[in-house]
């Protein structure tokens, strides 16, 4: 409440008190009320939900007690730590992940392994006393179902024979006529 011990005042203080006579006039308060209400209505329409939320949070923060502030600070710090861990945690190489995944899973299809007969003599090596005749070995001989040269030759021969037989049959027909 205003103090009014004018006897104890210094000249400076008396001069300053004269500023109480400065004012906007009697009409100011009623005009101000009208413009304030208009502004409130306009603000409600203009202010975004985000701006309102932010203002409420800051007001709550400034007005809350030390206990509530500590709780908020702790929760914010925990959230930041979690975010940092998600962002900066070391990521595995995708190839490494695929290998690890493959090691732990069963193959979808099982392909029977081909059993190739293993010649014990070939592995152990030939007897040095035995005469070795070299013969050209083609890679194709090592695969079952492959075509060795002699088979190709037999086929060529059969083909040639078939064409000769056709020619003989044609000449025999001509002689009869």
């Amino acid at each position: 409440m205003p103090t009014d011990n004018s006897e104890d005042l210094t000249p400076v203080q008396r001069l300053l008190r004269l500023k109480r006579h400065e004012g906007p006039g009697d009409q100011f308060v009623s005009d101000f009320m009208l413009s304030f209400k208009e502004r409130q209505r306009a603000e409600l329409l203009k202010q975004s939900a985000h701006a309102l939320m932010w203002e409420r949070l800051t007001t709550y923060w400034t007005q809350s007690g030390p206990g509530a502030r500590l709780a908020w600070a702790g929760a914010s710090a925990a959230a930041l730590l979690l975010f940092a861990w998600v962002l900066f945690a070391p990521q595995k190489d995708s190839a490494q992940m695929a290998i690890e995944e493959g090691a732990n899973t069963q193959p979808a299809l099982t392909v029977p392994k081909k059993e190739f007969p293993v010649d014990a003599v070939m592995i152990m090596g030939l007897d040095p006393a035995e005469e070795i005749t070299e013969s050209p070995l083609l890679l194709s001989r090592h695969f079952s179902g492959g075509y060795p040269d002699d088979v190709r030759q037999v086929r060529a021969a059969k083909k040639a024979q078939a064409s000769f037989m056709e020619q003989d049959a044609e000449s025999a027909e001509q002689q009869h006529q």
Partner: peptide
């Protein structure tokens, strides 16, 4: 009419 003004 303010006493402070009169004193000044």
């Amino acid at each position: 009419n303010d006493p402070d003004f009169i004193k000044v």
